[in-house]
Design a protein around this nucleic acid. Structure first.
Lengths: 155, 155
DNA sequence: TATTGTTATACTCTATAACTATA
DNA sequence: TATAGTTATAGAGTATAACAATA
């Protein structure tokens, strides 16, 4: 079923769901392998996502981070243990509400994130290079559609 | 950068890679949650993929399965332990080459796979229902593009 | 000797339950 | 009493290294 040229394909929600269930885990596997691999900063996917979040929202609390990533508090607390121990992240008391915790990245954490992201993007981009301009546009558009769809109802 | 309406977006391989790195892990999280949740057959994503493979290729060896899923042999061997113990899969000696192992699904394994797939697809499809016909077509087309791209160079 | 799997070991990811400390 | 986080415990997923069995 080659559908690309023909814009009149009827893509049902069910067919779409089926395709996503087929393809997304496969792409994920590639991303995971790339992240683990990329030298100097071997990161798991969840670790990478945490670094990405803290890179944007320095000073976030554990709860905020947890809700964004979609894990439980204990899981995230433990993950932070590892990142702090590796010297990639910081954890401190919030002086204004001492129940809370203020999270951030170390310089090394920033660097690890940048390197991991750059490396992984380069590898993904190499795959993308095999696509035509139109195919690239389609994939980009699809990501713009799926991103909000799956993030927005998470609050 | 809102690009949706405008079809003249220049989607570079790099931008595309960036978008994938953003969106795919998020979608994956939803899929994982759905699979775990769907009653009677709580499956991890890798387990689901194994069941899907054995559903199509009954009688596969451990190596064949391992290469398709993209794990190491020990990891897969251990995963099969779990599936066999749960009564979802079978593992037997190959009489023609006794180093090999012949894998398959039990009736229960078939059923678990069908239920998990159906349930997850229904949930994903509900999300997809919020999309326009054109958006659905875009997402479908993108999956048709990405699937082969990431599977084909894996042999 | 090469191939196919398994066992041993260890680390990360994840969850639930029970707890501590602060508000 | 409610909220933010940690500790304890356990199970799955993953890897590497070492091993066993068959070809």
């Amino acid at each position: 079923m080659q559908l690309l040229e023909n814009k009149t394909i009827e893509a049902t929600p069910e067919a779409c769901a089926h395709a996503i269930l087929d393809v997304v885990p496969t792409v994920m596997r590639i991303i995971r392998a790339r992240l683990r691999d990329h030298r100097t900063c071997e990161l798991s996917v969840p670790q990478f996502r945490v670094l990405a979040y803290l890179n944007r929202r320095s000073g976030a609390s554990l709860s905020e981070l947890t809700e964004h990533i979609g894990l439980t508090l204990p899981s995230m607390s433990k993950m932070m243990d590892g990142l702090v121990e590796r010297g990639l992240a910081t954890r401190a008391e919030d002086p204004e509400d001492r129940r809370r915790v203020v999270l951030g990245l170390t310089a090394e954490g920033h660097e690890a994130f940048q390197i991991a992201r750059a490396g992984t993007q380069i590898d993904l981009a190499q795959q993308m290079n095999r696509l035509s301009a139109e195919q690239l546009a389609t994939v980009s558009a699809a990501m713009e559609i799926l991103g909000p769809l799956f993030t927005e109802d998470r609050g």
